[in-house]
Simulated scan of single mutants.
Amino acid sequence: MTAGISVNLHSATPPYEQIRAQITSLIAVGALAPGTRLPTVRSLAADLGIAAGTVARAYKELEQSGLIETRRRNGTVVAGMPAPTAPARMPAAVSAEVIAAVERYIGAGREAGLDDDALLAILRTKLSQQDEYGEKASSQ
């Protein structure tokens, strides 16, 4: 099952993160349904031409996030998308301009190989700088 999973060794994104993100996406869009058995760590590593530890790390992170689970006799299977936690409420009157700016930010971050955690960290840093320095942080 390498269909849909590939690793770009020249990317700034570590291979384990590429695997984690791709499997997460496949689960999110329904290409990997709950109960679907994933290849063994060694098998996927061999298919992708990378170290088994790299795949093991991706699987470990997927398991910690509740997307997959490892069962002794059944191997590693898709658990499905976890139930969403209470989302932060979006203000009712968010302008299309703000939404478009956020989408551009996400797109630029993805092109740079950044994951959600990195994008949120950058945003939090900038927000805290703005809190500390007022409007000047936005022009830096």
Rank of each mutant, 00 (worst) to 15 (best):
23 I>S: 12
21 A>V: 06
41 V>L: 05
40 T>M: 12
42 R>I: 05
36 T>G: 08
33 A>E: 12
37 R>Q: 14
19 I>D: 03
27 I>M: 06
29 V>C: 15
23 I>F: 10
28 A>P: 06
19 I>T: 04
18 Q>H: 00
45 A>K: 07
18 Q>C: 00
39 P>R: 05
29 V>T: 14
26 L>M: 13
26 L>H: 04
42 R>W: 07
43 S>T: 12
40 T>D: 14
25 S>K: 15
34 P>D: 04
33 A>Y: 09
22 Q>F: 00
30 G>I: 02
21 A>I: 07
36 T>N: 14
46 A>L: 13
17 E>T: 01
31 A>P: 08
31 A>Q: 14
16 Y>W: 10
25 S>M: 08
27 I>L: 02
34 P>Y: 08
44 L>G: 04
38 L>D: 10
31 A>R: 13
22 Q>C: 03
25 S>N: 15
16 Y>C: 01
39 P>A: 06
42 R>L: 08
18 Q>S: 00
28 A>G: 10
27 I>R: 09
26 L>D: 03
18 Q>M: 00
26 L>N: 07
16 Y>R: 02
44 L>I: 06
33 A>I: 05
20 R>Y: 08
40 T>H: 13
40 T>N: 10
44 L>P: 10
35 G>R: 04
28 A>S: 11
25 S>G: 12
32 L>E: 04
22 Q>G: 02
40 T>R: 13
25 S>A: 15
22 Q>E: 11
35 G>M: 07
35 G>Y: 12
25 S>T: 12
27 I>V: 15
20 R>D: 09
21 A>W: 01
45 A>L: 03
25 S>V: 05
24 T>A: 11
32 L>M: 13
45 A>H: 07
39 P>E: 08
31 A>M: 13
39 P>C: 01
35 G>T: 04
41 V>N: 04
18 Q>A: 00
20 R>C: 03
29 V>E: 12
27 I>P: 03
41 V>Y: 03
40 T>P: 03
28 A>V: 10
44 L>R: 07
35 G>C: 06
23 I>E: 14
29 V>M: 13
42 R>P: 06
24 T>G: 12
22 Q>W: 01
26 L>F: 01
22 Q>P: 03
22 Q>S: 15
19 I>C: 03
42 R>Y: 08
